[in-house]
Design a protein around this nucleic acid. Structure first.
Lengths: 379, 379
DNA sequence: ACTCCCAACTAATACGTATTAGCAAGTGCC
DNA sequence: GGCACTTGCTAATACGTATTAGTTGGGAGT
């Protein structure tokens, strides 16, 4: 019993037969390349008519196998985007990429499949570009990359392969240069420090991420520069790292205020809502108030784009704009003959918010105060 | 001056040369297919070692050129998704599709490029599947379709050429059956009518969309059924259409309440925020209050997913779930040998809200009241 | 010694497209 | 009429992989 004939896609050869020309002619007409003006108008029309009739669609695989273009851009995220608390963070990026991609006449390929297969055929749990031993991204003409927990070795491989891609965020590898569109964390953090200094703060704690990725390094750099410009001598004890931002408790904070004498806090937010969750919990206790007891500013956006429960003082990165810029850079790479890596830095926006203020007047325990008969300070 | 040698990816042939075997052997080892157990263990190891050394990554394009499948699902929206007021409506669909696609081990292709080129090369403004004389969707193995303003002729073409796709929402064409995953608007609308009837309403106005698409027809059907089951004789004057939902004004409403004697209103929401805008404006006037003066329920979701200014009584379609279901149906179509179209209907969720209530007690103007000596009605 | 078979490989080919070299017919020019 | 040149097309090939149909060399069976 013969298996039911699977309907085959029509190919250029089918069209060629139909129109009574060669496959090469069809290709010239369809892809409309440089040499396509050598085709007679009548032939062109015949081919197009046949193509229309047969419902022809170019085969991406074959096209890109030849090295041609698919008008396809990829978007790859090193983190999984779907956990509810992360996707809000990534949505503006997605939107920016999608919009600009569309505007440029490209379609967008979301590399979202988690279930890669290793070369041995066993499914791998981890998210990877080289799933199945192949660079999946190559389906697309080029790719925008995103994410905090970058796999360095994969980035390196991409650079070595000379695959056109642009990272949203500053990233570096040992193997060579890569293109990116980054937010100017250095200046933005520096500006926040300057603002705090202007308000009189001298002991500003910087609560940084545990991992030592570029964005974090840039913020630390900005922190140091800001201090230097304000003439404050940095105190290494004021740079703290927290393994899990959810651990940030009011106990910690009181310890820092009391023990370290800090009056302001700079916190690096996370993509998920662990940090904002911790802040909300802290607000619930009402033991420390911002900015009455301590100023607090975020070094970036809290994840959710829904109206905040609190309008934190912070800087905000223009996520959609960065994403759009990344697409433009990428297309630039694709169009150029010898793609020099390009780096672009865009400024962050300062959001005044309401969580910083002047240094709170506080009784200084060590210094003796002129006592009244009761021994209690006057109010 | 010679152009800088573009680094070439290593191929199976490179590995073959390196390991002193043939390309076919490499392929057998790498892809580990059925016949790969015929390979001697020593050879296999040599090949894998060479692959490792050369940093081999299979070329997806070539692979899928042979196999036919790209493990790529498409998502096409007939409306442009990017206008701010629409994207919130479509986001849950996108999310649902993306998530399920990823879970199934596919990647997702967003057909967002607006700038199609017609066959003559002149850019066309309209959004179209068949841009450039080719069906762009065919790049993917199959496609999920979405949108209200469907191009019927394109849908028909898709059906004719037997392209695997699933519509999110009930759609029909003359040419044959198509697969869809739809919300049960009929029952949901019927249930709302039943609820209003239970509260004593007898004159319920149905404000429907102007165009006669399936979702609208289903709601109308549900409206009529609901009335019938409540034993209410339908009054055709109570079915109204509004060209632009933004035109819904408090004047209209007062006219309906006074002139038509309605006590409840069912409104079909739009994907953009024209309707909710109009409702907000109406609320601002404070001339008609819901549900004190009139009950109001929405036949679907208001577009934005940000917290509503008002918790409207309504039904809500499980957008993400529908999208996920659509992906599963689509993959079912792909896996099956002879793809029979499948139709799936999922129930809507009733959201009680706070905009419906009992029939307001109101003076009936026509009935003569016992007059006092002044001839003025007592207050 | 002869066939037969099997293990372990390779040669050849197809997938659908883009591109280049080249060919045939026509045109203009001397 | 011969030559160069143009126009409009086709033949041939390459891209990297999967697969099928062989092709070896040698060991077992008779």
């Amino acid at each position: 019993m013969a298996p039911p004939e699977r309907r085959r896609r029509s190919t250029q050869r089918d069209i060629a037969r139909h129109a009574g020309v060669s496959q090469a002619t069809v290709s010239l007409v369809i892809s409309g390349g440089a040499a396509s003006n050598q085709i007679a108008e009548s032939t062109r029309r015949a081919v197009l008519a046949a193509a229309e009739e047969l419902g022809y669609a170019a085969n991406v695989a074959a096209r890109s196998l030849k090295g041609g273009r698919n008008r396809l851009l990829g978007l790859y995220t090193f983190e999984s985007v779907f956990p509810t608390d992360q996707r809000d963070f990534y949505y503006p990026f997605l939107l920016g990429v999608a919009e600009e991609t569309a505007r440029q006449g490209y379609d967008l390929l979301l590399f979202s499949s988690d279930r890669g297969e290793s070369s041995t055929g066993t499914p791998t749990a981890e998210r990877s570009i080289y799933a199945g031993g192949a660079n999946r991204l190559k389906i697309a003409d080029g790719c925008v990359l995103l994410g905090r927990n970058v796999r360095r070795e994969e980035l390196s491989a991409l650079v070595r392969e000379d695959f056109p891609f642009v990272f949203v965020g500053r990233r570096e590898v040992d193997d060579g240069e890569l293109s990116y569109v980054a937010a100017d964390y250095v200046s933005a953090t520096g500006a926040l420090v300057a603002e705090l200094a202007r308000l009189g703060h001298r002991r500003i704690l910087y609560l940084r991420a545990l991992e030592d990725s570029e964005p974090t390094r840039d913020r630390e750099e900005g922190y140091r520069r800001g201090l230097a410009e304000a003439g404050i001598v940095p105190d290494e004890a004021l740079i703290r790292r927290l393994a899990d931002p959810a651990d940030l408790s009011v106990d910690h904070l009181e310890e820092w205020i009391g023990g370290l004498g800090i009056t302001a806090l700079l916190v690096e937010p996370t993509e998920d809502d662990r940090l904002t969750g911790a802040l909300a919990t802290m607000a619930g206790t009402e033991r420390v108030r911002f900015p009455a007891d301590c100023s607090l500013a975020l070094l970036g956006d809290p994840p959710s784009w829904t109206p905040e429960s609190r309008n934190w003082t912070r800087f905000s990165l223009p996520r959609a704009r960065m994403a759009g810029e990344a697409v433009r850079v990428l297309i630039g790479l694709l169009d150029r003959e010898s793609p020099e890596p390009r780096q672009l830095t865009v400024p962050c926006e300062f959001v005044p918010g309401d969580s910083i203020g002047p240094v709170p007047a506080r009784p200084v325990p060590a210094r003796p105060v002129p006592a009244d008969p009761d021994g209690r300070p006057t109010t």
